[in-house]
């Protein structure tokens, strides 16, 4: 019976620590309908034995929500950056390869350090400058269509797929990546947030800002939330140019 069971083969690129050498291990787990990559990794946790019968330390990775909302389980699956929880085995060619997103420093196995993106959110001042959380007069009404655009951009879960896929993010460039850049647009179109638009545009004019975007359009292809990243990058680019011109004339 057991031998006849359909198996799923996973080849996992592992790494014991930030400075260690990567190596590959192959695992097999039982197939079941609806199986996703996180569920497969959980099966390996229960029985961390490679295909050759070697008992090894369980694979280390990050996950939380398993619903494609938290952004934690991003990794490179069959060569493409995506969320492991929403990657169904049925839709993947076998053997399935898992690797860490090496645009970011690897901590261990598939676990990576994405703190650089959260730092970028500081740089673009990704917030509304409210006076405080206490009672204040109501926020202004909003155009419902603009609000819908804001809603779309506000789905960005800082997973890092767009950085991993971007040819301009890496040691050769300081580009902060599409996701964090486009967040600036989210706050610029808010009726209160737009007061700080010049500050955000100036942040994007500096090193690693929007001029580092090479318009490869890879980001929009891989965004798990289908955010129209390139559309908003183009809009921001226009806004930055306008702002730069205004700066020249005002001097």
């Amino acid at each position: 019976m057991a031998e006849n069971k359909k198996k799923v083969t996973l080849i996992i690129e592992r790494q014991d620590g930030p400075k260690e050498k990567p190596y590959k291990q192959t695992f097999e787990v039982d197939y079941r309908p609806g199986l996703n990559i996180v569920a497969a990794l959980m099966e390996i946790q229960k029985n961390p034995v490679t295909k050759d019968g070697k008992r090894v330390a369980p694979v280390v990775w990050e996950c939380n929500c398993l619903e494609k909302v938290c952004g934690a389980c991003m990794m490179v699956i069959n060569g493409r950056a995506r969320q492991a929880c929403a990657s169904l085995v049925d839709n993947l060619e076998q053997p399935i390869t898992l690797a860490p997103a090496r645009t970011f420093p690897v901590i261990r196995d598939l676990l990576i350090d994405r703190s650089v993106m959260f730092e970028s959110l500081k740089r673009i001042q990704g917030w509304i400058n409210v006076e405080g959380s206490w009672d204040m007069p109501d926020a202004p009404r909003q155009n419902p269509y603009t609000a819908q655009t804001a809603y779309e951009i506000s789905h960005c879960m800082t997973c890092g797929c767009c950085l991993e896929a971007c040819p301009n993010v890496g040691p050769q460039s300081d580009f902060i990546g599409a996701g964090p850049t486009v967040q600036a647009y989210l706050f610029n179109i808010n009726p209160i947030g737009k007061y700080d638009e010049p500050k955000r545009l100036e942040a994007l004019m500096g090193k690693g800002g929007i001029t580092s975007c090479g318009n490869s359009q890879n980001c929009v292809e891989v965004c798990p939330k289908n955010i129209k990243l390139t559309t908003y990058l183009a809009q921001l680019n226009r806004d930055v140019n306008k702002h730069a011109l205004a700066n020249i004339f005002n001097k």
């Binding site: 917030w127 509304i128 409210v130 959380s133 206490w134 009672d135 204040m136 109501d138 926020a139 009404r141 909003q142 419902p144 609000a147 819908q148 804001a150 809603y151 506000s154 989210l186 706050f187 808010n190 209160i192 947030g193």
Partner: peptide, 12 residues
């Protein structure tokens, strides 16, 4: 109202 001021994209 506080969340609205903070920019939560509530459906309108």
């Amino acid at each position: 109202k506080m969340f609205d001021r903070m920019g939560v994209p509530f459906t309108r």
